[in-house]
Write a protein that binds this DNA or RNA. Structure first.
Lengths: 344, 344
DNA sequence: TAACACTCGGAAAGCGCTCTCCAACCCGAA
DNA sequence: TTCGGGTTGGAGAGCGCTTTCCGAGTGTTA
């Protein structure tokens, strides 16, 4: 039972024999305090076991020392297994790790928020405007999401991870998805592949369409004007299915670029089942360099996505914007690299 | 620039032509309010676009509607890559997913806290006592951690995931690690393995020592009094190394239980390199049923750890304890099951 | 009509903190 | 001694909300 009242500034002041204001000044390291008093106050703090109440402080300073990590989902039928799938994926953890690496050092906390409905989004923005957090890092899952615009219109400092689907004046960090896809194309070509296909993600999410565009463009530049593409939804199973149909329609395929590692895992399974040897009969390049890539067999040649670095940069950007809300809107694009393993 | 002042209760009261108190009553759904006024107030709320300020509310109610997810690490040399490894592991995400599945429904938020030093722990407990959060879910990484005791002594509602290393009167959820290990032993035995080894985790973490004990006991009961054991640290590489030395010392090995899937992945690599076929020459059973288990090839036979369910239960337990701090200390132990795939 | 029990809404006291004023004081210059 | 400038510390007004306490209004019973 949390009964005994915790010591407050008032108590410390009484013990130290000074006023509340003075204690506050000392605690917050404001000069203009006699060094002697300074010591007396700290001593009283120690004796009382005083810990400042962040809530009360935030209420007046309008600063919470917290940023929100917002996961904006589209259709959250509550028992949607999607969310749990999302969390189980290393993607989420890598983002958190990257964010924490810079936030922690600044003593900034991270609060997790998940919104699935427009109503939820409205409430979220309201809470943020009320100073529930100093700003937000946004992971936007739906292809088209009103949240980024709502945030800018609400003057909430926010940074997106991944570019917004529609143009919104908001800070973001992203990966040069097209360059990554081009890297995959080059690699396949260099290996001597002649019939190259692709398994893409949903057409309406930016990261996905950028990969398709980059891949197509790179191949076209090298004389491959037409590329068979099958669409998946970034899950393992969809990758397996896509690989099967792709193979059925293009039996002579000898190389395939899969838009993420998870789908590539499924593709590998489909190929194994079809009796195709990887990489000898057919080369596979994934995307993300997730932990699945190393676990796969053969280990996946893939495009490395420096997600931790991107998240860390997003955190830095957010902190800067919180510090200076008038800062000009900026974006940082990371260049991916190809990691060669066994599959291609 | 967040310039214009947001509407407050006061503003709503003015628009509705009632007092602050009445608006507060309506918003919080307290009866004793004339239905007519009720409507007038809600109308005013809509017109002003009022959103209650959680901070101010929490300050007076002493309830934040937030629980902290505390990751207690031991030695956090700041650039320690360990933390990022920890976050990249699906473990973390699965816990978050499980927690959110129940917290979200209750409108409770999750705040992430990482502590690495005793000083940090002290500050954390102080903040929690001050009502920074209503309670804490604790992920304790170090083998022996003062945090659980500090929390109970500070009367902070808290639930551990994984039993405390030393006895502390605190709620926790855990897995019957010994039973899981016994399951693995039975399976290996049933398959006809004769020379069985184990790759364990660090000896001082409870989950790890329980697995060793359970495995040993189960084998002993079936006549295998001695089991060669090699220790790893739950990372892939340590598993690979452990497998190599285990194999070198016991060339006739035909079965091995690896204390987690990640190390099993490494073991698989070591076996492939040594030219042993899995499961034909040597059967491998992992632990966790992480995503790595399906990605591996051959897919890992492993012990399923219902981590999401455990985390969800932890959340429920915490919510209950917050509601009733006098509730008797309880723990919930989950029974693992064996998932048979290809490796054994 | 008087007395009583209820119901409902408002005034105001905080929750624990920060920070603006302002009074008190000390110093050296005139 | 008087005055101006520069420090230092205290009083007190909030931050936005909840909640206790009361008075006013309503209806019921004798």
């Amino acid at each position: 039972m949390r009964t005994e009242r915790l010591p407050t500034l008032e108590d410390v002041a009484r013990v130290a024999g000074v006023s509340r204001a003075t204690v506050s000044r000392v605690i917050n390291g404001i000069r203009n305090v006699d060094p002697q008093l300074h010591e007396v106050v700290w001593d009283a703090v120690g004796r009382t076991g005083y810990v400042p109440n962040r809530l009360a402080r935030s209420l007046v300073t309008r600063r919470t020392g917290t940023v929100a990590l917002v996961v904006s989902d589209s259709e959250s039928h509550d028992d949607d297994p999607f969310m749990s799938r999302f969390f189980a994926d290393p993607y989420f953890g890598r983002v958190v790790g990257g964010l924490m690496s810079v936030l922690r050092r600044q003593g900034v906390q991270l609060a997790l928020q998940i919104v699935g409905t427009d109503d939820g989004r409205k409430r979220l923005v309201g809470d943020l405007r009320n100073g529930q957090a100093d700003g937000a890092i946004v992971l936007s899952l739906p292809a088209v999401d009103p949240l980024p615009r709502m945030l800018t219109e609400g003057d909430v400092p926010a940074v997106l991870i991944g570019r917004p689907a529609e143009p919104v004046p908001i800070d973001y960090v992203d990966l040069a998805n097209d360059t990554g896809a081009a890297l995959a194309a080059e690699h396949l070509l260099t290996r001597g592949c002649q019939r190259i296909g692709m398994i893409s993600g949903p057409a309406d999410v930016p990261a996905s369409s950028d990969r398709v565009a980059g891949f197509r463009r790179a191949l076209a530049r090298r004389g491959h004007g037409w590329v068979p593409i099958e669409t998946g939804n970034f899950t393992r199973d969809s990758g397996e299915a896509a690989m099967r149909t792709l193979l059925a329609a293009n039996p002579e395929l000898d190389g395939v670029f899969v838009a993420n590692d998870l789908m590539a895992l499924g593709a590998l399974a489909a190929l194994r089942e079809a009796g195709r040897r990887v990489p000898d009969d057919l080369a596979v390049v994934g995307f993300d360099d997730s932990s699945a890539a190393v676990a796969a067999s053969p280990a996946l040649t893939t495009i490395r996505h420096p997600l931790e670095d991107m998240a860390a940069e997003a955190a830095r950007l957010l902190l800067a914007r919180i510090e200076d809300p008038a800062m000009r809107v900026s974006s940082v694009i990371y260049e991916p690299v190809l990691v060669e393993r066994e599959s291609a």
